[in-house]
Structures are given as structure tokens and as C-alpha cells.
Design a protein around this nucleic acid. Structure first.
Lengths: 356, 356
DNA sequence: CTGAAAGCGCTAACAG
DNA sequence: CTGTTAGCGCTTTCAG
């Protein structure tokens, strides 16, 4: 590997000068000297050792993104957003999946500290765990003491600047929408209890039901992991216990997809027999049949803005947490409750919201 | 940040001893001394500076994964596989999306060199571009000269150890399957011409058609990006030009999903009017309706084994490129050609391959 | 404008 | 078994 030392020798200058030319230092260097350095560097095919630079400056230009699972399309989109913004600023992206394990998440955080990353973005919600929260609190203050940035992209119990959507309001809006369609027995596919995002969305569902006068019935709530299998199992449980359900609101799209599988297996038509709504608007739901009604979360944008916010923090700018708007995307998986208009529901076909 | 120096002082030993205890050196240290160091480290909350270590050892424990697009589920799975294996060995994962831009891919590679990553995994296929191939060749030899590892997870024109599936054979097998069903006019949704993966899959399609006696007709091939929109557009072109098509083979699942959208928009039933087959078996295709027949690629496994191969290279072990098996997954999107059995095809319903 | 020198935090000979 | 001494390759005062 060719070092600045060698470039310096070839150019007949000191390493210090080479550094001044080759890093983006604003330090004054005579034009002629600069050219000699540049030529020498080109001739030798010099590439700066970014690790050495990082050690000297204690700035790595690395941003870490902690996701729950990078193979989950929700996080794939977020990471892509981070990457797009990071690339513009010469940052590299380190990703780690925690599988929603509090301890693993802490380990990752420790490692990121050890690697001296400039910023860490928490893309998922926080996990309800005593030790986890304590650990986060400690590490967060460590991080900011060292001039690093921490930004949340979802609801978190440990305070840090945050750019996220209003999950509670969006869940309430979707629930209200189902109520407006005429549904009275609306089940909730709740996420795992340890996950703050799930809790917040469930709270929105509950509030909407109470405000609409339908009332909240805990029996209509079934928990599951934020996966299609989790959604399928929770749906099965709900359906077995309540044959009067006409709509199901899933806390995320993957669960909603699982719900549709279960309904298909039971030969219950969506939305004629049961309406289904999801949350997130990942790509896949457009290709489901019928295409899924869901809450669109601007995932990519969340990633981009999250990175930019981190950058501002690194620059010492004071930032304010921001909330990004969501949107109800009505597609074919929701409709009026069965029997609502005298048609024969099971054969009713929704034509709205074709995936194209 | 607390350094080894400080730990050394507290423990009353030299920094060297601290290093010997705290790195996983096998160097002999008396039990008592070791304990004192450990205690001191714990007391101070010492965390090693991995960058400094990397600079000293020229080993970063970072693996770079170059993907085409991390928001594409195919790459999400691969990266997850890499991550799982990397985590077991204390490696961090740096991801970068190139958007299939040759120049961007080279830039990424340069950056990875600058960061001194231990290994780089090329997860997508190579790009047909003169400068790109030259650049890769140069950088690859640079990399291996420095004792780093390069591994391919897909077809690449620039030689390096590789762990991948036999795309050509799998594409041929799927085409043959469609032919066996009775299809004679089988369209191909080819990927972008600059992408080696697309070329190899197209070659398999062609060979199968020739071997089956149906013959290859270039008019039945339409190109598009490896995205659903690319697939949709290519399908539209194909359908407009040929109303005798009874099956469409898409070079990847996203394209196949796009094809299904287009057929739905034209009110053509799948598989009764036209059969559709894809390639990769990403999660989403299970939730499409009908669920997609496709070639299952062990994406996660590819990532895992790719990382492990890189590790072996780093250990100086000679490795041999490997081919992983694929599997034809027959679901509901394929069936006999229309009119093949006298039924009224448009109302025919496939019940096979339910997503559950 | 340029160079010398110190140092980022760790590891790796080499002595002892 | 432990300490001393040099770096790894870059940046950054501080002189000049």
C-alpha cells in the first residue's frame, strides 16, 4: 500500500504538505506544490488509508444502522434511504440486525462504539426490557459525550432526536376508516408485546374504537410476531374465537399478508367476508390479491432524513425531532362488512386499487 | 474514551500486558496479572478502539457486501445470510448499493480498499462494461496482494472464488417444465443486457427451447430492468406483439410480479390464459395471487457460505468455487396452455400452491 | 506557504 | 511471564 510518506518523497515535499493537499483541508498550499503532490499521488496510485485518518481525526465517516432484520422489506427500504443520503456525504453504512433481541441490540451498540462510528440510527422501535433501557441510556450519553449522533427512526423509550411517523394517529385513522365502512367487530393483530411500535399502534386502534363509540374489546386483540407467520397464527386464533369479526387490522404489512393466507386457507373471501388492513406499505402488498389497504410510511424518506439529521448533530447544530406524515392507502382488501348492502358477499369482487 | 494506557496504570502493568489480556492473544500471562487487568478494565469500562487495532494489525474484521439494491428483497436475504455468518465471527457488515452502475460499483470498491475491509462479497452479477472489467481486474489483484478476500455470489466476468447457483441450468429446467406442460409459445422477460445474470438465464431459456425442439424465437424475448415495472413494461410489449403466447418466463421474481400486474390489467387470467414463472423465490411471490411458480435460489445460504469462503481465504486456505442447488417450486401461476383440455380456460382456477 | 515533531490507541518484536 | 520500544498511516499544532 502506498502511503503519504512515499508520495511526499516523490513530490519532494513533507508528508504534512501531502496531507494538506490530499485531505480536503482548506490549508493554503502553493499552486505549484499542490500540482506536484497531485501528480505524484496519481503516479503512485495513492489511496488514503481511511482507518489511519479516522484514528487521527476520530471521525470515521461511518454511520451504523441498527435494524430488526435487514431481510424485512420495511428495513430494506429504510437502509436504502440512509444509504442514498450517506453516499452524498461520503459516508459508509454499517448494518446490523438485532432480531429484536434487547441484549443483541446492546452488543451491537457497544461494537459500534468500539468502531467509533460517527452516528447510529435506530431504525426499529425500542424494546421493553429493563436492562436494555439502562444500557441504551448509558451508551447514548457515552456516544454524545464523544460527539457522536444518535437518531431514532421509530418510537423509543430512551430519549434521542427522532424522525418518525405518528404511529398512534395513523393506526387510529385506519381503525376509524374501517368503522366508517360500517365495521363493528374489528380485530387487531397486535405485534409482539416487547416492541414499542406495536404498543403505540395498538393504542391508536384502541383510542379510535373508544372515540367512535364502538368500544374497545380486548378479546378482539391477538398478538404475534411482526412476520407473516405471526399474523397467520394470530388470525387463526381470532377467527376461531370470534365468528362475528368482519374486519382485521394488522399492526404491520407482513402480519396482514399472513392474515390473508389464513383467510384463503379457510376459503373466506377478502374483503367480502372479512376486510384486512395493514401498516407500512411495503412493496409486496401491492402484489397480494386483493392488494392491501394499508398505512403508507415513507420508509426511504425516514432513512434519508434520519441520516441528514445525524449529520446536523455532528456539525453541532441543534435539531428538533420531526414527525413525517403517513397516508391511508385504500386498496382492494377493505370494503363494507358482509351483508351490509344485501349483496351476496362471498362472490362480491372488489375492483378498486389494482396493483398497476 | 478510556485507553489501554489507563487500564495499564490502574492495574500497575504495561500497556503491552493489557493488550495481551484484552485482545484474544494466546500469549502467556500469569493468572493473577490477568485478573488485575480484567478488573481494571471492568472498573474503567474499557472498550478497545477497534480502529486503532485495525491500523496496527491491518485487519478490520469488516466485510463489505456490494449489492445492486439493498431494498430489493433478493439482496436483503443475501445480506442477512452474510450478517448471520459474520456475526458468529465478530465481523461487521458494510453494505453498498450500486444500482447496477459500473462506475459506481468501482467507486465502492475503491472505497472499500481505502477502508481496508478484510473481504468484499459481490452479491450481484457482473456488469458488461469495458472500464468496469478492467477496474475490477486491477482492484481484485490489489486486494489479494494485500491478503484480502474477494468472493462472488453470482456470475462474474472477472475471476474470483465464487459460490453461486447454476443460473443457466435452472433457467433451462424451468423452460423445460413449461414445455412439458404443453406450452409452445413461451415468452422471455429478459433482464437488462448489461447484467451477466440476465444473460446466463436467457441462455438457459434458449438452450432448453432448442433442445426440446420448439426452437428459439428472438421475437419472444423482451428486455426490461430487474424490477416489477421493468417486467410489466416488457410483458406489455410482448403481449401487444404476440397474442399466441401461452406462457411467460421472467428472469427474476420482481419482473414476474410486474407481469402479473399487466395481465390483471388486461383481464387475462393466470395461469388459464397465460402461465407465469419467475426466478429467485423471494418472499413476496408467495403472497401474490396465484402464488408464483419460480426457481428457488438459496439466497441466505449463498450469503452465509460466501462469507465463510472469504474467511477461509483470509486464513490462507485454498478454496474451490462451489455451486449450490436450486429447486423448481411449482405453485399456482403455471398450468397447461389454454384450450389444452377443452375446459373453458378463463374461468379455470388453480388451487395448487396455496401460500400457507 | 512549508516542514518537523508529536500523537491517535493499539500491537508486535525483542529483551530481559 | 512482563516491560520497552517502535511503529501502523494519517493529521495537526507549532515554528519558521
Amino acid at each position: 500500500m502506498v502511503s503519504m510518506q512515499q508520495v511526499a518523497e516523490l513530490a519532494g515535499v513533507s508528508p504534512a504538505t501531502v496531507s494538506r493537499v490530499l485531505s480536503d483541508s482548506t490549508y493554503p498550499v502553493r499552486e505549484a506544490t499542490r500540482d506536484r503532490v497531485l501528480d505524484a499521488a496519481r503516479e503512485l496510485g495513492f489511496r488514503p488509508n481511511l482507518l489511519a485518518r479516522a484514528l487521527a481525526t476520530s471521525r470515521t465517516s461511518i454511520v451504523a444502522v441498527i435494524v430488526h432484520d435487514i431481510s424485512d422489506p420495511y428495513f430494506g427500504e429504510i437502509v436504502r434511504g440512509v444509504e442514498d443520503a450517506a453516499q452524498e456525504h461520503g459516508f459508509q453504512v454499517l448494518v446490523s440486525s438485532s432480531d429484536r433481541d434487547p441484549q443483541r441490540e446492546l452488543e451491537i451498540l457497544e461494537l459500534m462504539l468500539a468502531y467509533n462510528v460517527d452516528a447510529v440510527l435506530f431504525s426499529g422501535g425500542s424494546l421493553k426490557d429493563e436492562a436494555y433501557e439502562r444500557g441504551c441510556r448509558r451508551l447514548f450519553s457515552d456516544l454524545s459525550a464523544r460527539g457522536r449522533a444518535v437518531v431514532h427512526l421509530g418510537p423509543h423509550t430512551v430519549k434521542a432526536p427522532r424522525i418518525a411517523v405518528d404511529n398512534e394517529a395513523a393506526a387510529a385513522a385506519m381503525t376509524a376508516y374501517l368503522a366508517e365502512l360500517g365495521h363493528r367487530r374489528i380485530g387487531l393483530l397486535d405485534g409482539p408485546p416487547r416492541l414499542s411500535t406495536a404498543g403505540v399502534r395498538a393504542a391508536g386502534y384502541r383510542r379510535a374504537l373508544e372515540e367512535s363509540g364502538i368500544g374497545y374489546d380486548p378479546a378482539l386483540v391477538a398478538c404475534g410476531e411482526f412476520t407473516s407467520e405471526g399474523g397467520r397464527a394470530a388470525t387463526a386464533a381470532l377467527l376461531d374465537a370470534h365468528d362475528d369479526l368482519t374486519a382485521i387490522f394488522a399492526s404491520n404489512d407482513l402480519m396482514a399478508l399472513g392474515a390473508m393466507s389464513e383467510l384463503r386457507a379457510r376459503r373466506m373471501h377478502v374483503p367480502a367476508a372479512v376486510s384486512i388492513a395493514g401498516f407500512d406499505d411495503v412493496q409486496a402488498v401491492q402484489y397480494a390479491w386483493p392488494p392491501l389497504t394499508t398505512v403508507a410510511v415513507p420508509m426511504r424518506r425516514l432513512g434519508q432524513l434520519g441520516f441528514e439529521m445525524a449529520l446536523r448533530i455532528l456539525d453541532g447544530v441543534r435539531v428538533r425531532s420531526r414527525t413525517l406524515p403517513t397516508e391511508l392507502v385504500i386498496r382492494g382488501s377493505t370494503g363494507p362488512p358482509r351483508g351490509a348492502d344485501g349483496s351476496t358477499p362471498t362472490f362480491e369482487r372488489s375492483t378498486a386499487g389494482d396493483a398497476t
